[in-house]
Design a protein around this nucleic acid. Sequence first.
DNA 1: CCGTCGGATCGAAACGATTCGAGACCGAGC
DNA 2: GCTCGGTCTCGAATCGTTTCGATCCGACGG
Lengths: 380, 380
Amino acid sequence: MMTGTGHRGGDTAGGASAHRPTLATVAERAGVSVSTASLAFSGAGPITPETRDRVLGAAKELGYTGPNPLGRQLRSGRSGVVGVVVGDQLRRAFRDPVAVKVLDGLVSTLGENGLGVLLIPGIPSDDPERAVDPLVESAAMDVAVLVWGVGTDDPTLDALRRRGVPVVVGEGRPVEGAPLVAIADRTGTAEVVRHLVGLGHTRVAEVSLPLDSSDRSGPLDAHRLAQVDRTPTANRLAGVRDVVEPVASWETEASLVEHGRSAALALLGRPGEDGTVEPLDAAARPTAVIAHSDLLAAGALLGVRELGLRVPDDVSVAGFDGLDLPWLAPDVLTSVEQPLARKGAELGRAVIGLLAGEEPGTVTLDVELVVGTTTGPAPA
Amino acid sequence: MMTGTGHRGGDTAGGASAHRPTLATVAERAGVSVSTASLAFSGAGPITPETRDRVLGAAKELGYTGPNPLGRQLRSGRSGVVGVVVGDQLRRAFRDPVAVKVLDGLVSTLGENGLGVLLIPGIPSDDPERAVDPLVESAAMDVAVLVWGVGTDDPTLDALRRRGVPVVVGEGRPVEGAPLVAIADRTGTAEVVRHLVGLGHTRVAEVSLPLDSSDRSGPLDAHRLAQVDRTPTANRLAGVRDVVEPVASWETEASLVEHGRSAALALLGRPGEDGTVEPLDAAARPTAVIAHSDLLAAGALLGVRELGLRVPDDVSVAGFDGLDLPWLAPDVLTSVEQPLARKGAELGRAVIGLLAGEEPGTVTLDVELVVGTTTGPAPA
DNA sequence: CCGTCGGATCGAAACGATTCGAGACCGAGC
DNA sequence: GCTCGGTCTCGAATCGTTTCGATCCGACGG
């Protein structure tokens, strides 16, 4: 396998201390002061090339690979770490390509500025009675990013503010003193619904994102509607109602394919004789389904197919996000495209800005209706 | 919105220093020494309840929320951070549910032990000429986890060893002095191929995982086969050949649905007249496709459908991973199920063990053949 | 030839906590 | 009354770096 030197590195020589060399060791070896040695590495401040080379040489001989980040961090008061609170359990958050794309943009932008991303579960993975993950309380981080829905009285947010960790919010309700990166949720949703109405649809059914963290699913009535405590959800619900009052609405527990499918079966079908589900009569059936996310829409599409209905002849389906979903072939989902990677990048920029002392502001990104093959004229 | 106190916290009183209180501040206020105050928080060492309460009270008055992690880290020499190197670009790594599930298990296990996960791109996101991400060189971490394929002369691995950061390897070739968590890749692959052969298939086509990081795709011949430099790939290639020599093999650039689809079109079809792809003649066509991953298999399945062929009547398709892919309905993929979350958990355990000074060992997890609806008898 | 200026180097003081050994205090036993 | 032992508290050292101000030196101008 030939991986070269052993595990510990070559301190087999007449090592004074068995431990890892420090800047002081290097300085001594090079015959300079610690401060000069520091200069040689950081490059801040004047230093003769010869001196620097001498220090770097001594470092190489000793196997010193650069200043210990811990010391540097204590001195500078910064850890170079940005905590990213992923809304829910990690598993579920990452099953959603939307989340992944945003995260990708975020990591890239932060990486370019030498910042690392520390993953923090929004809900403690171990102890369900605890309100927040222990990392929230005690991990070193310069800024925290809250993506995907800050509820009111969010315990994680509270803990972070108590600690004095600056916060950046994405896709959430505004938080005082924190930059916000949002998208034009409401108008975008309204636009796609207007597209459906323009095609002659009057009986529109809705598949909603989760209203809160309660894991509830089922029909969404006016009473429940008043309890919505998540921002993207609230905006999209409102966007739909800006144009039309849905004939039926279904609340899901998570934005995943399987939940979209169940919703479609519930909205467009009824239990059959032998335990199967059969479609409602055409006269009573909604002719269009607007889902709050593409994953939900994709599930709905599968559900519609499963009921033996044709898309878009019998039922039109539209989503939100603008994901590329090749496995829906031959269908291409009508959707509202949002710039996900850019959203991540803007979150990153907001973090950098905050660290640079800029005043927090709000960024709202535009979205665009993209018409696919899953929407068509309402059946006659 | 009523979020309560302002952003900075209430240091509007006659604040001596505008800055955040330290343990020294608290100690002074409580009338005890710094060391005693430390005891009050850490709980290590004897302390009278009254003294502790006095310290905690003072802390609350001053808005001190606990010891600064940076100071603690410098003293203890540990950062509480585990770097996780995700093989490729983040985007691609996270589009693979396999990666996500492993990561989820890992984060849970580490979280229970107070360790956080720092995301490190395996390939630098910004500067393509640079060999490793800057975080690899200078971020504080106690251990690094390399998941998904360590090549020979992996620059990231080299950099970590140079720094003296202990390493845990998952799904890779063994690394000296580093714990390894692997699965029974080869025997599992052999088992599913044996299943196909048992059904009478003799013309088996193979869709391979990437052989290295070159982003190549295309037919896989003996020459190229000798260049394989990734471990799960090497094992699965070998597992197939333990049972049968494939009539055709196709190398993909990533384990994603679209690449599986292209592979299937290339292996089972040929360019038609009007730019479309039409299936090969039944006599020449492979009757089974074994893909090295479920995502590739799913793509292959879509490709097969697209060619107008029936599964499993015309072509059987099998994968590896045991993912739940509801959108393939009504088909259920025949696959080899591997315990993904457990793999993550074992990686976490290895990290903990390493930090506790245990000797690194190897863990190999078992896999299980799960027969679905996508494999059947070879056509007569 | 002296004063001054600027660049390179050095010392020492943070940064904020943990930890070890020493000391203070108190009660009990002889 | 004195010593011993046990508990709690304190001082000081330490972790490894950065940075500020002082110092030292050679060179240049007057």
